[in-house]
Design a protein around this nucleic acid. Structure first.
Length: 910
DNA sequence: CTGAATGAAAC
DNA sequence: GTTTCATTCAG
């Protein structure tokens, strides 16, 4: 039994590192960081496993251990949610490692622990909150999850471990599904499964899709799914954090309770629920999940298209009935319409007339379908309601009911027609759905993208700032969505996604035509659309560029950060704020594109809630039929074509959304949150992960320097107890600034830096901050009494020991635990002084020197020694090489110490 | 596989 | 109170 599992794992992984892999799977961030390629591969493998698991179903798990094991293997992957400290470690480990390349993970962990200890309560709270949120989401996603194997402790044994864990974990089948879902989500590609799913006959006919979509709508499950979005829409949801909502959604849409819960739930939570829900639906559905957000988008588009199609659908259906449902006929019909449209194009009036004609025809048919359509209608209506643009239908003069259809049909037809004419930026305004398509285009035209990037950034700043996101949302939702949908439909019918360019052109035309028709559409600024598009394009490129430019380590961080990005950190962690606007070109480039995407997505999400439900149904249908597969494949291709950037873009988009959520939360814009969650729901598991990533990324990062200083001060506090310093909080902030500042000086390498530091801050502020820092650190002998937690003992013992060992090779040991404490205190005091020094990479060194000095006066020999030890640690962290020269500063204090410090450092490093 | 940290959950 | 285990990855 076990063996089989192992084999699989081993085979899958290829290397011996299962745990990592699991981790990677569970945490997209990690995977991304390590290797994009590896991730994909892993994901694929995982998908397979997941599928198996799903197939096995709940029964399998419980009954057969062996089989279950296989299934479970994926389940096992589900890791218990990280606690605050782990989150902190995860977020900062890279930084620590950067500073102390020599340091192994253990050492890094120690440092992280120190940092954590020093970390400002407020900052800690952020992590704790995040951890709790994530945990809640996780639990929702995995209701049966148990942290520890109740009875089994044999976890250690390799083979047994798996079994016990599985049993112990007691994932309900659903939960198991949920777990895999995230993985699936990661893996965008599930071609095999999808193909399998799709029946050739079904594949051929779009009608099937429509039917399926209808069916789905009718289906309770689907309805529930749709309902969810509504729930999310409810004001209550807004309040909840995205994660929570995520979890709830994932857990089960069907639950009536959900709404209440959702209020509290965060996006992650919703995601979790969605994912769970999808998992529940069925194995096939689970497979569907595998589809990434792209798929979801496609589904959405399809849904939207369905709505549009409904009109056309009449024809389709008829054709289908008579004919096995050919796409060709549809195409023909569309073409005809297009032709008409073209003719009309010259004269808007004519167009409308024709439109009406075709529309009327459609309407007639629609009447027949009416009952069915009504459902969709509702969705559409909602959409329309949201989007003023849609009002155009009134212009058409059609009945409101039918008007929706006409609009859609119109838009669709318009698109097609337009395809011939090459449009420009105005057309650029891409609908959400279109976005996907656009990406491929972008690939085709890299140069433009790059150029656009800068411009887009600049524009974005102006536009975005000046104009709230709302405008974009509305537009996108209405026109872009419809267009995208239509486009998608067409593409599906044709089977050609590849014609991205053409598609774009048509879209553009459509817009133009639409603009001709309805001033409303025109009203929307084409520039923005263009920008958004450019942004997307730029994103991909930028992501690539950034990666290249930055060191590998950073890349991971940067990626995550970039994704989550700019906003979250600035907003949440620091008041820095509008960094984006100010952001330096490098950073801004990365961040901006993402933002644009995020905005887009957000907008999209927000505009159509009802659509979502429809989308969900469509998505399911598509998946079942296999139609989606082809679409997805095309989309994926386009995205992938960009390469890594694609995945990153994808993530970035979501991350952006999350950002928006965060921002909105901070800023207070609830709307965004609501809308996003809905979309998230569609994304399901994937989103959950993404949400997690986003949130994780949004977590504040602190510069090592800050921590070092803090560490010095804090430890002392703990031990001394008496001294309490409010400093920590202040310090944290200051540190953040410093950090950013430092980074600027040191390297522009990290995107994170940029993120942290506000663009505005720039160097000067940073300097100021640094200066300020010393003050913070200096004084207070705070004594936090440490909240010794349950594990205090452990900690105390370990810490003492470690410190002793670290500090001095031989000397320290005699000093004893007490000494350890003192040294830290001394260091703290000294640090503040040190801070005065200018900030450079050397800052640390200087700080060290300063520390030494200060220490000397207070504690003669011993203090000096400890201070040295502390310095050594710091130095080690930073690399002795860099800062040794700070000696100049040292001179003031104690020349002797300087020399010693290096030695100590070396020891510490070792 | 171990460990270094912290914390939550389960015992 | 103690044990497990979450992340990370060199050793």
């Amino acid at each position: 039994m076990k063996g089989s599992n192992r084999n699989k794992d081993s085979t899958e992984e290829g290397t011996g590192k299962r745990p990592k892999r699991k981790c990677l799977q569970w945490h997209p961030l990690l995977a991304k960081k390590l290797l994009d390629f590896s991730e994909e591969e892993e994901e694929e493998d995982e998908e397979e496993d997941i599928d198996k698991v799903q197939l096995l179903g709940a029964d399998g798990l419980e009954q057969d251990v062996g089989e279950t094991e296989d299934d479970e293997s994926p389940e096992q992957r589900a890791r218990r949610p990280m606690n605050a400290f782990l989150l902190f470690c995860k977020r900062h480990r890279s930084l620590v490692r950067q500073e102390h390349p020599r340091l192994d993970n253990r050492g890094a962990t120690k440092i992280l622990a120190d940092w954590w200890a020093v970390l400002d309560p407020k900052e800690k709270q952020k992590y704790t909150d995040m951890a709790k949120e994530y945990k809640d989401a996780f639990m929702k996603a995995n209701p049966g999850y148990k942290w520890c194997p109740t009875t089994n402790k044999p976890v250690k044994s390799p083979t047994p471990t798996v079994n016990p864990r599985k049993k112990l974990w007691a994932f309900p089948p659903d939960s198991s599904r949920d777990l895999p879902s995230p993985k699936k989500a990661k893996t965008e590609e599930m071609p095999q499964l999808n193909f399998g799913m799709a029946d050739p006959t079904q594949m051929g006919g779009l009608s099937m899709l429509l039917l399926a979509g209808e069916h789905a709508l009718g289906t309770p499950e689907i309805s529930s799914g749709t309902c969810r979005p509504d729930v999310s829409e409810s004001p209550e949801l807004r309040q909840k954090s995205p994660l929570f909502q995520f979890a709830e959604i994932s857990s089960s849409t069907s639950h009536p309770d959900v709404p209440t819960k959702q209020c509290q739930a965060s996006a992650l939570f919703q995601f979790a629920e969605i994912s769970s829900h999808t998992s529940q639906l069925g194995g096939t559905e689970s497979v569907k999940r595998c589809g990434k957000s792209a798929l979801f988008q496609l589904a959405e588009m399809c849904l939207a298209s369905e709505g549009v199609k409904m009109e056309d659908t009449k024809e389709w259906k008829k054709a289908k009935e008579s004919d096995g449902g050919r796409i060709t006929e549809l195409e023909k019909g569309q073409e005809e319409r297009e032709i008409k449209m073209e003719k009309t194009h010259e004269d808007g009036l004519q167009k409308e007339a024709e439109f009406e004609k075709s529309f009327k025809d459609n309407v007639r048919e629609a009447k027949e379908l009416r009952n069915f359509e009504e459902l969709q209608m509702d969705d559409v209506m909602a959409i329309k309601m949201e989007d003023p643009k849609e009002i155009r239908k009134e212009e058409l003069g059609e009945d409101q009911k039918y008007s929706h259809f006409p609009d859609f049909s119109y838009s669709a037809s318009s698109k097609i027609i337009i395809s011939d004419v090459p449009n420009r930026k105005d057309h650029m305004c891409h609908p959400h759905g279109i976005m996907i398509i656009e990406d491929p285009t972008a690939l085709n035209k890299p140069e433009k993208l790059k150029k656009k990037k800068k411009k887009s950034k600049v524009d974005r700043h102006g536009n975005d700032k000046s104009t709230p996101k709302k405008t974009c949302k509305k537009r996108q939702s209405s026109e872009s969505d419809i267009e995208s949908v239509i486009y998608t439909i067409e593409a599906v019918a044709k089977g050609d996604w590849g014609v991205d360019k053409l598609g774009d052109a048509p879209r553009k035309k459509v817009r133009t035509s639409s603009s001709g028709k309805g001033s409303i559409l025109d009203a929307k600024p084409p520039k923005k659309k263009v920008k958004s598009r450019e942004k997307k394009m730029s994103k991909e490129k930028s992501s690539d560029i950034t990666k290249e430019s930055r060191p590998p380590d950073f890349i991971s961080i940067s990626a995550s950060k970039s994704i989550s990005g700019e906003v979250p950190e600035g907003i949440k962690a620091e008041p820095l704020t509008p960094t984006e606007d100010v952001l330096p070109p490098n950073l801004s480039g990365q961040a901006k594109p993402e933002d644009s995407e995020c905005h887009r997505k957000i907008e999209t999400c927000g505009s159509r809630k009802s659509e979502r439900s429809c989308k969900g149904a469509l998505y399911k249908t598509l998946v079942s039929e296999g139609m989606l597969t082809s679409l997805r494949a095309n989309v994926d291709r386009g995205k992938r074509s960009s390469g890594k950037g694609n995945s990153s873009d994808h993530e970035g988009c979501w991350s952006e959304e999350s950002w928006t959520f965060n921002q909105s939360g901070t800023s207070g814009s609830k709307k965004f949150k609501k809308t996003k969650p809905k979309e998230d729901s569609l994304l399901g598991s994937t989103k959950l992960d993404e949400e997690f990533e986003k949130k994780f990324n949004s977590l504040p990062q602190y510069s090592p320097v800050t921590f070092d200083r803090k560490c010095v001060s804090i430890p002392r506090k703990k031990k001394k107890t008496g001294n309490i310093s409010s400093e920590p909080t202040k310090t944290s902030k200051g540190s953040g600034d410093k950090w950013s500042h430092k980074q600027f000086f040191l390297d522009a390498i990290h995107p994170t830096e940029a993120i942290f530091s506000e663009d505005k801050n720039t160097i000067e502020p940073a300097l100021k901050v640094k200066n300020a820092l010393p003050t913070f650190n200096t004084p207070e002998p705070t004594a936090m009494q440490e909240p010794l937690v349950g594990s205090q003992k452990r900690k105390a013992r370990k810490t003492k020991i470690t410190h002793l060992v670290r500090t001095a090779d031989g000397r320290v040991s005699p000093a004893g635990g007490t000494l350890d404490d003192k040294p830290k205190e001394q260091l703290q005091r000294s640090l503040p002084k040190a801070t005065e020094t200018d900030c450079n990479d050397d800052c640390v060194h200087r700080a060290e020197a300063g520390e030494t000095r200060s220490s000397t006066p207070e504690m003669p020999a011993v203090s000096a020694f400890f201070s040295l030890a502390a310095l050594a640690e710091v130095a080690a962290m930073e690399n002795v090489h860099r800062g040794q020269r700070s000696t100049s500063l040292t001179h003031d204090g104690q020349p002797k110490e300087m020399p010693q410090a290096p030695v100590l450092i070396s020891c510490a490093d070792q």
